[in-house]
Write a protein that binds this DNA or RNA. Structure first.
Length: 235
DNA sequence: CCATCTCAGCTTTTACCCAA
DNA sequence: TTGGGTAAAAGCTGAGATGG
């Protein structure tokens, strides 16, 4: 469904995104050519193997980007939230999408066609630089994810994941840091390359150890230092 | 031997439909 | 609209297998 209410000039995550340096006039030009869609949870935005025709920009909500293996197991490559762009790497390298993107909650996502995006990069070096930064950031995260899987055990990986969630989705409350993200145990498992059973067991253990409290999918971090210790990281 | 995975079976929660 | 019934999904646990 088309949602004309979202305007690039006034988009809430604008200052966090790669288009933060564009002038209001130029943004209104993009605004005129972009398409905004509202997605329900679990709706696919693009599929692995499809050709990219433009860039997706998350306005609100959350999206998981994952690869599926031959046995149907998913591995989540990254999560995208407000201000994040998706599908830009394949657009730049002229390759089909390497992963599938699916919403994990209700989301508003803008689509900017390839021509417009290319024109922005050619005429706005600062924006091109922000895109490069995003690319470098994603690459760094991917390297970190590989290292985590190779070097850490499952317990450490889950603790490290909760700490990255703290930085990204943490909300300080009375009893601890509430994580403002709702993932199934299976999705948590897909993020750290393990089975959902292992995640369930570890969550129960963390709960028993007083590190976290859990209410359904809602996780609250109670003991951050202990979580750092469990993740084998130094605060 | 230990950490982890896989499988099976169970309980709980959620979603959906339908009648009142 | 709400309450009950039902099915599906999610969550949990134990046992055994596997691989380093």
């Amino acid at each position: 469904m088309k949602n004309p209410s979202v305007q690039c000039q006034t988009c809430a995550p604008r200052n966090r995104g790669v288009f933060c340096d564009l002038s209001a006039e130029y943004l209104s030009q993009i605004n005129a050519s972009k398409v905004t869609n509202k997605y329900s949870p679990r709706q696919v935005i693009f599929y692995d193997g499809n050709n990219p025709y433009g860039l997706y920009c998350v306005c609100s909500g959350k999206v998981k980007i994952f690869k599926m293996d031959s046995e149907g197991h998913q591995q989540i490559v990254r999560l995208a939230g407000p201000g994040d762009i998706m599908g830009y790497r394949c657009l730049l390298s002229n390759e089909p999408y390497m992963a599938t993107a699916e919403t994990i909650e209700e989301s508003e996502i803008c689509f900017i066609d390839k021509t417009t995006f290319t024109h922005i990069l050619e005429t706005h070096p600062k924006t091109a630089f922000h895109v490069m930064s995003a690319l470098a950031h994603d690459l760094g995260n991917a390297e970190g994810q590989i290292l985590n899987i190779v070097r850490k055990n499952v317990r450490e990986r889950l603790a490290a994941l909760l700490l990255t969630f703290k930085a990204k989705y943490g909300e300080n409350g009375k009893q601890g840091v509430k994580l403002n993200i709702s993932l199934t145990r299976e999705e948590l498992a897909e993020l750290i390359g393990t089975s959902q059973e292992s995640v369930i067991r570890l969550i129960s253990e963390f709960k028993q150890d007083g590190i976290i409290s859990v209410k359904g999918r809602q996780i609250t971090l109670l003991d951050i230092p202990k979580l750092f210790e469990t993740a084998s990281l130094v605060d």
